[in-house]
């Protein structure tokens, strides 16, 4: 039902107004309800088709023996929790959970702190700040496949520019991508680089929404510098901060491309996360049931964060 049709209905309805004050009010009430419903229908449809179906399919798939064979025969026997038991009981699972946690926390902390500092820095409006801020968006503009290829070259142990630079300061070459002890850190650093523009942009626009009067009034009361940040900026920025962190967590949990591009989960599984394992099982080993089980675990973790976020924002609204 289009808006034009709705409008036409509205026009038709208006002559019927003289039926009496109560009837007209009830009709108007109904009309409003119908309009509201009709506005929701396209969105609901999109959600059911584009989000609902894949999630339900993913859920059912995780309880099935869904393999390469299924595509040809259409047979996917139900296996209950077998897929979940298989993926969780594997020795690697604990490691992937720890890696996912380290990767997410490390990336978010790094991205957020650097993004926040840069946002505050650019908020001071110095000459050329627009140009510089645009430059910081670069990681966002580079295709991920190019970005990870470039970083692979930069982090190369023997001839990578980073180790060559470190050598100038007398630091021994760091085995960025070749040592299981360092690889995860290297991946986190690259992901921080990648996440800075997102944090910077959102936090910067949040800062711009804070009225200058607050700072002027604060300055009169002696709140400048750190105290101004803590008492004026931070409370006013809280809504933006929670959005940034929430989205950051969800985006980081599912990061796949840069890990595949940089280490492929290696060396010796040191950079395997739940996301890479899910990918590996589904699209390399074609054990779609197990891959779905892992991605469902990831969805549940994301949902947990979403709930925390929703509760936090509700509290803000209540306040």
């Amino acid at each position: 039902m289009s808006q034009a049709q709705l409008a036409a209905r509205g026009r038709e309805a208006s002559p019927s107004a003289p039926t009496g004050p109560t009837g007209s009010r009830r009709w108007r009430h109904w009309r409003e309800e119908i309009a509201k419903t009709l506005f929701v229908v396209p969105a609901a449809f999109a959600i059911v088709v584009l989000f609902g179906y894949p999630v339900v399919k993913n859920l059912t798939m995780s309880f099935q023996e869904y393999t390469i064979r299924t595509f040809f025969t259409g047979e996917a026997p139900w296996v209950g929790l077998t897929n979940y038991v298989t993926v969780i009981s594997e020795e690697l699972f604990t490691k992937t959970v720890i890696n996912t946690a380290l990767f997410t926390v490390g990336s978010i902390v790094g991205q957020f702190i650097i993004g926040m500092l840069l946002a505050l820095f650019f908020h001071r409006h110095f000459p050329l700040h627009g140009v510089l801020r645009a430059l910081f968006l670069l990681p966002w503009l580079i295709p991920l496949i190019v970005g990870s290829a470039a970083w692979r070259a930069i982090l190369e142990q023997d001839s990578g520019i980073l180790n060559v630079t470190l050598a100038v300061f007398g630091i021994d070459p760091v085995p960025w991508l070749t040592s299981p002890d360092v690889a995860l850190l290297a991946i986190i650093l690259v992901n921080i680089w990648l996440g800075i523009p997102f944090n910077l942009t959102l936090l910067y626009s949040g800062l711009q929404d804070i009225p200058d009067e607050l700072y002027e009034a604060g300055a009169l009361d002696g709140a400048t510098g750190w105290r101004a940040f803590w008492n004026i900026t931070w409370p006013n920025l809280r809504a933006v901060v929670s959005v940034v962190l929430m989205l950051g967590v969800v985006y980081t949990l599912k990061v796949l491309d840069i890990i595949l591009g940089l280490t492929h989960g290696g060396p010796a599984n040191a950079t395997q996360t739940i996301a890479t394992q899910s990918y590996q099982r589904s699209f390399v080993e074609f054990k779609f049931g197990e891959g779905a089980a892992l991605s469902n675990i990831l969805i549940v973790i994301s949902l947990a964060f979403a709930v925390v976020y929703l509760r936090a924002t509700r509290r803000q609204v209540d306040e």
Binding site: K57, N58, S148, L256, L260
Partner: peptide, 16 residues
């Protein structure tokens, strides 16, 4: 099945 992004491989030619 959740649709994933296409495989990332090291060969730039493949991407092209």
């Amino acid at each position: 099945m959740i649709k994933k992004r296409p495989v990332l491989r090291r060969w730039a030619t493949v991407a092209a």
